[in-house]
Design a protein around this nucleic acid. Structure first.
Length: 321
DNA sequence: GGCGAAATAT
DNA sequence: AATATTTCGC
């Protein structure tokens, strides 16, 4: 594993664009697409920007093993392949036409789509941190998913906690009907109010100790190794750029330029090429270097039951989710 | 300023 | 419906 890491890292290093390319003018420290991907607001900011470029245009290289607060992480989350966050194309920047002139300032990140993969990584992270240390910031760091913000995690975490709470109620108390919905959990789930949540959350197993508020996690082992963890590394910054590009067609040219740079040709499945109702997309399927066994992920366009027309994109691993 | 929970917005 | 954002108390 370690070898692999250094391996991809070397290549990653080699193929880095020259600083000049990424830093054309004094003010722009990073390319717009990267800025977008990293949630870095408009470089036209004053103050901090002009000091000394602490900011790097480079992706924070290999996920720094957060040995900080981790209790005794014998096996920290597999740094493996930090999934890139996928975004739904919301855009539709109607009306104001802000996109034209003053882009960066009013630019909004696209909505994060919590794919089962992403959620799984989330769960793994929480599992390894232990409930106590599992706060948005640390979770986010552990996940090391590019483009993922603290708020993304916080929002998701909030939902997830509610989910866990419900599960607890069902598994332990039960009888009294702690929740008004009363209905099933784990498998059946009839709860009307927040049944929808189930689908996503049910896609990843909930580590046992999550359900027991009492004791600290005695076992911090991976429930199971995520398929993505087996091999394939690199590709991260491309993903980030790509994700951004999905929602912002105008950036595509730059995005492609980037792709040219890192130029990892598409040979994988995985990370579907997902585009909302954008007019057209240049074939941008970047793949993980999925080699032999890894089945990868299949794409599934499923129209939600009772939901006319709306396409829900569900990434599901053909392996073990 | 981060966290968490609830309310509210998109 | 699924996320994001805001608000508020800590």
């Amino acid at each position: 594993m370690r070898e692999d890491d250094s391996n991809w890292f070397s290549r990653w290093e080699e193929e880095l664009p020259s600083p000049e390319e990424l830093m054309p003018i004094s003010q722009t420290l990073i390319t717009p697409d990267l800025a977008l991907a990293f949630d870095i607001r408009n470089p036209t900011n004053n103050a901090t920007a002009n000091t000394t470029s602490l900011m790097q245009q480079n992706q924070p290289p290999p996920p720094p093993p957060p040995t900080t607060t981790t209790p005794s992480p014998n096996n920290p989350l597999p740094p493996s392949q930090p999934n890139s966050a996928e975004y739904a194309a919301d855009s539709a920047d109607l009306g104001s036409g802000a996109a034209g002139d003053e882009p960066a300032r009013t630019l909004k990140r696209p909505r994060l789509v919590w794919t089962p993969q992403l959620h799984k990584r989330f769960v793994d992270a929480v599992a390894h941190l232990g409930i106590k240390n599992a706060v948005p910031k640390t979770i986010m760091q552990l996940m090391s998913v590019d483009g993922l913000t603290r708020e993304n995690v916080a929002s998701h975490l909030q939902k997830y906690r509610l989910y866990l709470k419900r599960m607890q109620g069902l598994s332990s108390g039960g009888a009294g009907g702690v929740n008004g919905t009363g209905g099933g959990g784990g498998g059946g789930l009839a709860a009307g109010s927040d049944a929808a949540t189930e689908h996503l959350f049910a896609s990843s197993p909930v580590p046992a100790h999550f359900l027991h508020p009492g004791r600290p996690n005695s076992d911090h082992f991976l429930p199971f190794v995520p398929v993505a963890a087996l091999q394939h590394h690199h590709h991260q910054q491309q993903m980030a750029a790509a994700a951004a590009a999905v929602a912002h067609p105008q950036l595509q040219s730059q995005y492609q330029r980037q792709m040219g740079h890192f130029g990892q040709p598409p040979n994988g499945q995985f990370e579907h090429t997902f585009l909302a109702r954008q007019t057209q997309q240049p074939v941008h399927r970047m793949g993980a270097p999925v080699h032999n066994s890894v089945p990868g992920f299949a794409e599934d366009l499923e129209s939600a039951s009772g939901n006319g027309g709306r396409k829900v994109l569900t990434l599901f691993p053909t392996g073990d989710d």
